[in-house]
Design a protein around this nucleic acid. Structure first.
Length: 313
RNA sequence: GGCGACGUGGCCAAGCGGUAAGGCAGGGGCCUGCAAAGCCCUCACCCCCAGUUCGAAUCUGGGCGUCGCCU
């Protein structure tokens, strides 16, 4: 899985925070250079989660898309599965003489697709180890669980904050597979790219971006986000482990259950999205392979020409 | 006009003489199979002025402002 992928043409990755116009740019670019879009978005993966994830509507898609609507919200998905999907797309699209354009805000997914991210084989998201240790954390507390890890694998424990229970549990999962979190982690200091790719990042002034996010959330509500969520609930949405955590969905569920007013829910969606954007900025900022374009003006045409110019260099 | 209450960071809010809790928002950062998740770090000199005091956000006087009630 670590072997470099030989492609005729490098993959183009369009990344950046939410609401900067990645989707439109990707499609415009794909149209112009005979490309296909691979969405690297952990939530657009799910069927039926359309409005709240900002998924491009079916009737507006002018190029082939991959990575959308491939999983039911009640089922589990993971970065490992996405890696596999993306790599297969790259090979297939390239073989047909077309261009792969990765478009997405989920930094982990983009890196899993392009870089040497080694995930153990198999689909074991809801494995028994995870369940067991999650219960221990709940019953005895974060610190107690972390101390258990420290006793078994002090090197890994040293790298993980005691409150970061997710990571602590992951370390136990690796132990169960005969691996060591610290050891895996040590091999990650530099980015090892295994897929030829160029990176375009869309950036936007924070205050402006947050304003844009707020407007976008209001639009989602107008477009029927609440009904979308109601429909999902009828289909067993709650059974999912990832999908129900999506911004815009968990808040509406809370409102439908009477825990919040709709206005409060909307406000929370806006705030959560601002914070999400901040985390995305932090994630992509440190990747110096990215060429950043200013997306303040959201003129997609203009952005595309800039991106195109960048790519020709 | 009278009476009463209040005035602490962007918001909410503790403190009631000993050198500014906490929450939210904001900012910075981490991240190798749940990632739109999870986690860490960070942010004030207390409306203004004059006093009392070794020392005041905390007490006194005045000013300004806000809110409530009354005429």
């Amino acid at each position: 899985m670590d072997a470099p992928l030989a492609l005729q043409q490098p993959v183009i990755c369009i990344v950046g925070p939410t609401a900067t116009g990645k989707t439109l740019l990707a499609q415009n670019l794909a149209q112009r250079i005979d490309g296909e879009v691979i969405s690297a978005d952990s939530m657009q993966i799910y069927r039926g989660m359309d409005i709240g994830t900002g998924k491009i509507p079916l009737d507006q898609r002018t190029v082939p898309y991959h990575g959308l609507d491939i999983c039911d919200p009640g089922a589990a998905y993971s970065a490992a599965l996405f890696q596999d999907l993306a790599r297969r797309c790259f090979i297939d699209i390239d073989a047909r003489g077309k261009r792969s354009i990765v478009c997405g805000g989920t930094g982990l997914y983009v890196r899993a697709a392009i870089d040497a991210y080694e995930f153990p084989q198999g689909d074991q998201i809801e494995n028994p180890v995870r369940t067991t240790y999650a219960r221990i954390a709940q019953e005895r507390g974060n610190l107690a669980l972390w101390q258990m890890l420290k006793a078994q694998d002090s090197a890994s424990a040293a790298l993980i904050h005691p409150n970061n229970t997710r990571r602590v549990i992951r370390a136990f999962e690796l132990i169960a597979e005969g691996k060591c979190y610290a050891q895996v982690h040590a091999g990650l200091s530099e980015m090892k790219q295994v897929v030829p790719a160029v990176f375009i990042g869309l950036s936007c002034n924070t205050a402006l971006l947050n304003q844009r996010i707020d407007a976008r959330v209001d639009t989602m509500i107008e477009e029927g986000l609440v009904d979308e969520v109601k429909g999902l609930l009828d289909q067993g949405f709650r059974a999912g482990i990832t999908a129900p955590q999506a911004i815009g969905y968990k808040e509406i569920v809370a409102a439908l259950e009477g825990e919040l007013s709709l206005d409060e829910a909307i406000e929370r969606i806006k705030i959560a999205t601002h914070r999400y954007g901040k985390r995305q900025r932090t994630w992509f900022r440190k990747d110096n392979r990215i060429t950043w374009l200013c997306a303040d003006s959201q003129e997609s045409e203009q952005l595309m020409h800039q991106a195109y110019a960048e790519l020709l260099q």
